[in-house]
Design a protein around this nucleic acid. Sequence first.
DNA 1: CTGAAAGCGCTTACAG
DNA 2: CTGAAAGCGCTTACAG
Lengths: 355, 355
Amino acid sequence: MKTGFLVGSVVRGGTVDDRASGERVRLVDVARHCGVTKSVVSRVLNDDPSLNVRPETRQRIRAAALELGYRAHAGARALAGAETRALALLIPDLANPVYSRITRGAYRRAREHGYVVLLAEDTADDGADEAFADLVEAGRVDGLLIASARPDHRLLSSARLARIPHVFVNREVPGSGRNVAMELAAASAAAVEYLHGMGHRRIAMVSGPPDLRPAVVRERGFVDAVQALGLPSDLVARGGFSEEGGAAAAGLLLDRDPLPTAVYCSTLGQAVGALHAIRTRGLRVPADVSVVTYDDLPLADYLDPPLTSVAMPLLELGAAAVDAVLKQLGGAPPADVAIRVPPAIVERASTRRLD
Amino acid sequence: MKTGFLVGSVVRGGTVDDRASGERVRLVDVARHCGVTKSVVSRVLNDDPSLNVRPETRQRIRAAALELGYRAHAGARALAGAETRALALLIPDLANPVYSRITRGAYRRAREHGYVVLLAEDTADDGADEAFADLVEAGRVDGLLIASARPDHRLLSSARLARIPHVFVNREVPGSGRNVAMELAAASAAAVEYLHGMGHRRIAMVSGPPDLRPAVVRERGFVDAVQALGLPSDLVARGGFSEEGGAAAAGLLLDRDPLPTAVYCSTLGQAVGALHAIRTRGLRVPADVSVVTYDDLPLADYLDPPLTSVAMPLLELGAAAVDAVLKQLGGAPPADVAIRVPPAIVERASTRRLD
DNA sequence: CTGAAAGCGCTTACAG
DNA sequence: CTGAAAGCGCTTACAG
């Protein structure tokens, strides 16, 4: 069956009329319209530097393409050996707003370079391999941004992965040489130093699952920072990145005696859970416990109390990840990229100075 | 440049060896491996009913395809006139968790039918037309699920849209005959009836932007329900679907005298904002005001107090939307679809019985 | 420097 | 009923 609906638009401005309406505008249509060959049009439109043609003609071709609403068929282009101009972004959890910010950063940058990014949720249980296959092996994308790599991810051991340009975003794979990462450890250090400056000496951390790199790195950053200041470093509890996980982990911390004076959470979701746990025990924030959260999102400002948080350069991260794959696409060897924008403390009402 | 990286996997189990490693596995490879022609393989793999071949052969071909890791090149297939087996889902806001649930529902159902869904955020300001063009006109997708239609959306007036199978999800376009919708008005009615049953007589609503269909429909459902019960229907304030919008609208409602005894919010984000506004004025939930929110999400359970909410069949909505485009793809004329799963009240601590 | 031609990997009428 | 062949819309060596 011919997919008659996959057609381009026909802008009938002016003299355009050499094709039946409702059909896809093809390269040859543009060529005919301009009295040149397909080759020239293709080369002009793709900025082939080896082409030498009058600027006048170049412009005429561009104008015609625009007027006719020409858009290259992605499949045909890919088949002919060129790029698909699409990138896939694999994220672990659509519901986590952190990824929506990374995604936005990636979208924007990709668009600037004429690329689309196709988003896919790559949950651990779900057919991750399938998603991969659907996108990469079906030739739909040129490169992969993987924000969902677990150490045991099937993708990672896949020989197929080696053949396609890719980077790991916010999920370092040690030794891959393809990590695009923020300064996670620095974020924890910033939180610790901020709290220390406020007079806190018993600082606890609600950390994430030990099989998730970013969780591990943030936790290590915390432990290092706390030890450097000569504070106790055993006030760490781990839980899932969700409200539930945060509540459970915070509960453990709140059973300690003496009570921590401050809790730093790995995730806004966890912080919401921690707030819940604190409340449940009849304690108050920040009177009894101060709370700081990683991830600055609008929600933080509307919680009770509004949460002091560590803002991370998520948009930059997404953009940098795109830059990195694009570089690989351009032939450069993969390389680690560190986002140098330092984490920033956004102070709100959930933290108090201890006197 | 040949995209040498867009290659299939080579599973070297057993006797597989008739191609150089690292190359894409093509139809012809499978054919050769089985001693048949490409045609047969293509037909078997695509379940062509007009093909008559021994079940034994059929099975042998399927096994070989699997063993070789064959996967049709999406571009080639599209070019040859078949489907791309990809659908695009356009959502208005990645950060809104409602859409992540709809998306999940859509993904799952699509996968069941062998389709991928490509997600794109289609913000009002951003180049919506561009996103559309990139996906549809470049021949990347067979159909569109549009969850981002505003009445003034450029897409809607686009003649190009008419040529591609599409549905509107959670965003009715009146008269389009392509709406896949939940019972939005019923959701509001359920909230109102629940509150009425609890003894509330002054029920207010934090509604959404008047240019967003779902907001309008939910508001109308509210007004109708309230009037049917003989309650005042002027306790409505509108705001954006965010925390900020909810706080502002709730603020307006809290200035009324006498105070509403209950507030129903259009969105969980708004409800968070409303909670904030109530707290700011020194009022308590549910002692002074009860709060019910549309959208039941994990967060609702961890707020202070946990929010009573109206749970909607979001997964079903996403799945039904996929079914609907797939039907159009199959040649059926577009039709409205109503999700009949009734909205359910999830009772938590934010509402109290008035005596 | 440019145009004609081959070829990318599929699907599907069409001829046998 | 099945296989050979055409053709989808591109890009890009290659010949002129």
